[in-house]
Amino acid sequence: MYAGRCYGYFYRLTGDRDLSDELLSELFIKLVEKFGSYKGGAFESWLFKIASNIFHDHLRGKQRRRKLLDTHRTQVEREPDLNESRCSDEGQERLDRLQVHLGRLDADTRDLILLRFYSEMSFKEIAEHRSEPIGTALSKLHRGLKKLRELMED
């Protein structure tokens, strides 16, 4: 149940299945190690806070960050090919289009949108986790989702 959502979160952030596998493994191992520090409350919020921290730790690694940027660049370059193959596999094409357009958003906004969507955390929790005012988080989310909608509707 949680594995699917966490995997979706990682996959939408990275666009890389192998990397998502790796991050998912890391998340659940960390979950076992940190379980003693769980002080009740919404388990999902706690889980996704760890997931978000793992992703940001991952981003901090220079080599991995370079690889991620390359992945996104490749995806953007691949977009015309996807449009050409639309008739062959409509579902897969739509799936990839979302990934491509998510890749066009800035990393911070993308993380905010995906954290909100997959974690089901409230804005208050998201704002606290990101150490920013709730109005800022709300405004960034609105701008990001609006842009995503426009990109998808083009």
């Binding site: 995997y7 998912l24 799936l95 979302l98 609105h142 609006k146």
Partner: peptide
């Protein structure tokens, strides 16, 4: 805007882990 965009996310599910 938020509702429409979130519906787009819902209709484009991410792959599941193997």
């Amino acid at each position: 805007d938020v509702n429409v965009a979130e519906r787009i996310l819902e209709t484009h599910p991410a792959p599941l882990p193997s």
